[in-house]
Amino acid sequence: MFTGIVEELGEITAVENLGDSCRFRVRGPVVTEGAKHGDSIAVNGVCLTVVEHDADWFTADVMAETLDRSSLGALAEGSRVNLERPMALGARLGGHIVQGHVDGTGQVLERKPSENWEIIRISLPADLTRYVVEKGSITVDGISLTVVDAGPDYFTVSLIPTTLALTTLGIKQPGDPVNLEVDVVAKYVERLLANSGQGAGQ
């Protein structure tokens, strides 16, 4: 479980093709501190498992399913990535509950800079629109953000200078893909309401 508060802007230093999967080598001295084989680290919002590690890097295997359903397949040597370790039990929840399970991908459509912040418009897959509401939470490339405007096939987020400086959203351009994870609470509520409706009809 993660919070969507990015700890470090890391870098893909190698991509090894393993046929039906690949292995990333990721530089990230903050998140590798105290890391062990089998630990989880979120890379652009995708929960990956540490295979090998050293003082400032770790490797993780990425299966074909993950490459197909997320934007990780577009990463190459030199790509910058958002990194976060799992939240510690009893720690403050700075963002919102993030599972590290990508629901789909969107695409940066537009950037509107202003003096102290920037508005970014991102496309939204049709099957995810019902989970995205104005002022609700959404995870974009592993970053916990608040939805400003929720359209029929897009949403917007407002980014403060810290987010622009310390995450990949500071460098993403129109056309770039991003990983999306909707608020898990919305999915549970939908399931509960659906089950409640079935029960009432029996």
Rank of each mutant, 00 (worst) to 15 (best):
L109S: 06
L9Y: 05
L75P: 00
V132Y: 08
I160G: 03
V148S: 08
P125Y: 15
N116T: 11
H101N: 07
V62M: 04
T59C: 10
I5F: 09
G4R: 04
T139D: 02
G28M: 02
Q202T: 02
T66F: 11
L128R: 13
A126C: 10
H101K: 07
D39A: 04
E77T: 14
G90A: 12
L109K: 13
V108H: 12
D103W: 13
P29M: 02
K112W: 07
T168S: 13
G38K: 11
V102L: 10
D141M: 07
T3L: 12
G142T: 07
P177Y: 10
G94S: 11
R130C: 11
D20M: 03
A150C: 12
T3W: 13
V15S: 03
V148I: 07
I120A: 02
E11C: 14
L193V: 15
R111I: 09
P125N: 15
T32R: 00
I41W: 03
L193M: 15
S70N: 02
T32C: 15
L124E: 03
E115Q: 13
R25S: 07
G90R: 09
G104Y: 05
R191S: 10
H37C: 04
S137W: 05
V50R: 01
T32K: 06
R25I: 01
V26A: 04
G175E: 14
G104W: 06
T139S: 15
